[in-house]
């Protein structure tokens, strides 16, 4: 397998730590490559392990067996002191969004940029750009707790994109969106992919499954990930 660019899983197994070895694996022998410049969609039933796969790709979890490679580097094998800084190349959208409610919208976007040694003025410019893309410019000073569900989701996506990461991992990014905003999010993710990012989306959303913006589709079932060529 070509492992030079993009993100890849190699014979990836995952079982929750502390579970018995005779219990079934959450992910078994996952073999996949997500290339830069493409938008990949992973579908599957609830509880099939889509979020777990994203967390493994983001370096938040360690595989039970196998490896995650990023740009030709075996990041899943790395100790924390190397994996933590690598995570700056990842932008993740959690299913539960994980926004900080007492911070303003702008401050939530500032959060991933603080440790990145970027000038303050450039941080502000990036945040302005992301707010405009997410249709949240008027709400920069509003506390996050005052936003609607859809606005919060767009903010979570903006937070994942604001530092221009190399790998974008989004869990149900359009779940609370109307058609217009769902299309806007698709466009944002496509734009990131066209700029060279690896975009992996896990979703149930039929609008995403039907979208032309998706370059590759995968289905996760019975702990196994298979590529599906059809649009539906």
């Amino acid at each position: 397998m070509e492992l030079n660019t993009g993100m890849a899983c190699r014979r990836l197994d995952f079982r929750w730590p502390g579970r018995r070895t005779d219990e079934p694996l959450v992910l078994e022998s996952v073999e996949v490559k997500f290339s830069p410049g493409t938008v990949s969609l992973v579908t599957g039933d609830t509880g099939s392990g889509k979020s777990t796969l994203l967390h493994l790709l983001a370096g938040l979890l360690r595989p039970t067996a196998g490896e995650v490679w990023a740009d030709g580097l075996p990041v899943s094998r790395w100790p924390s002191r190397h994996r933590d800084p690598w995570r700056q190349q990842v932008g993740i959208v959690f299913q539960h969004l994980a926004l900080i409610p007492d911070l303003t919208v702008g401050e939530n976007l500032l959060l991933p940029m603080i440790p990145r040694q970027i000038a303050w003025s450039r941080m502000q410019e990036e945040i302005l750009r992301q707010l405009a893309d997410a249709d949240l410019s008027a709400l920069a000073d509003a506390p996050t707790s005052a936003l609607s569900g859809g606005q919060r989701q767009r903010l979570a996506i903006a937070r994942a994109l604001v530092a221009r990461p190399r790998f974008i991992l989004a869990d149900e990014p359009t779940a609370f969106q109307d058609d217009c905003h769902a299309a806007q999010i698709r466009a944002q993710l496509c734009h990131a992919a066209h700029e060279g990012a690896v975009v992996v989306i896990c979703s149930h959303d039929p609008r995403l499954r039907a979208s032309d913006a998706i370059d590759r589709r995968y289905h996760l079932a019975s702990a196994t990930l298979t590529e599906s060529s059809a649009n539906r």
Binding site: G106, E107, L109, Q124, I127, L128, S137, A140
Partner: peptide, 9 residues
């Protein structure tokens, strides 16, 4: 040039 700061703190 761009006095508006979205997260001025």
């Amino acid at each position: 040039r761009n006095p508006r700061q979205p997260a001025p703190c």
